Computed example of a mutant assay.
Amino acid sequence: MTGPKPWNVVHTECVADCRVFDVLARHSQRGEGGPCFTFFSIDSASWVNVVARTAAGELVMIRQFRHGKGGDVLEIPGGMIDPGEEPEVAAARELLEETGYRGRLRLIGEVNPNPALFTNRLYTFVAEECERVAEVANDAVEETQVELVDPRALPERIRAGEVDHALVLTALYWLQLHEQR
Score class of each variant (00 low, 15 high):
46 S>Y: 09
41 S>D: 06
28 S>Y: 00
39 F>T: 04
47 W>R: 07
42 I>S: 05
23 V>W: 01
16 A>M: 02
8 N>Y: 12
34 G>N: 09
9 V>G: 06
5 K>M: 14
7 W>K: 13
35 P>G: 11
29 Q>I: 13
17 D>A: 03
12 T>I: 14
28 S>F: 00
41 S>R: 05
35 P>C: 07
23 V>H: 05
43 D>E: 15
10 V>P: 03
4 P>E: 14
23 V>T: 05
42 I>Q: 14
16 A>F: 01
38 T>S: 15
41 S>V: 11
19 R>Q: 07
19 R>L: 03
22 D>F: 01
35 P>A: 10
5 K>D: 10
37 F>I: 07
5 K>L: 14
4 P>Y: 10
37 F>V: 01
26 R>L: 12
24 L>M: 09
24 L>A: 01
25 A>N: 04
13 E>Q: 13
19 R>Y: 04
32 E>Q: 00
45 A>H: 15
24 L>N: 02
38 T>F: 12
31 G>Y: 02
11 H>T: 05
46 S>N: 07
7 W>N: 05
30 R>W: 08
33 G>D: 00
46 S>R: 11
31 G>E: 04
14 C>I: 13
8 N>T: 06
39 F>V: 10
31 G>N: 06
26 R>G: 05
32 E>R: 13
45 A>R: 05
43 D>I: 00
29 Q>D: 09
23 V>A: 04
15 V>A: 01
36 C>K: 15
40 F>H: 11
46 S>F: 12
32 E>P: 01
33 G>I: 02
41 S>I: 01
19 R>P: 02
40 F>Q: 04
37 F>E: 09
30 R>F: 13
14 C>T: 09
20 V>M: 09
13 E>N: 08
47 W>G: 14
20 V>L: 10
6 P>Y: 06
40 F>C: 02
23 V>I: 08
4 P>C: 05
23 V>P: 01
37 F>P: 01
11 H>I: 13
13 E>H: 03
14 C>H: 13
23 V>N: 03
3 G>T: 13
12 T>Q: 14
15 V>P: 00
12 T>L: 13
31 G>V: 03
19 R>I: 04
30 R>S: 10
36 C>N: 14
6 P>R: 11
24 L>W: 07
6 P>E: 07
11 H>F: 11
32 E>G: 12
17 D>P: 01
19 R>G: 08
44 S>H: 00
29 Q>A: 09
3 G>S: 07
8 N>K: 14
30 R>E: 06
22 D>S: 01
24 L>Q: 06
37 F>Q: 14
6 P>T: 07
36 C>F: 03
9 V>M: 14
45 A>E: 08
32 E>T: 10
9 V>R: 03
47 W>A: 14
25 A>R: 07
27 H>Y: 11
32 E>D: 11
17 D>S: 00
24 L>E: 01
47 W>E: 12
27 H>S: 12
5 K>I: 15
39 F>L: 08
37 F>L: 11
3 G>R: 13
11 H>G: 02
5 K>S: 15
16 A>C: 03
33 G>Q: 02
21 F>K: 04
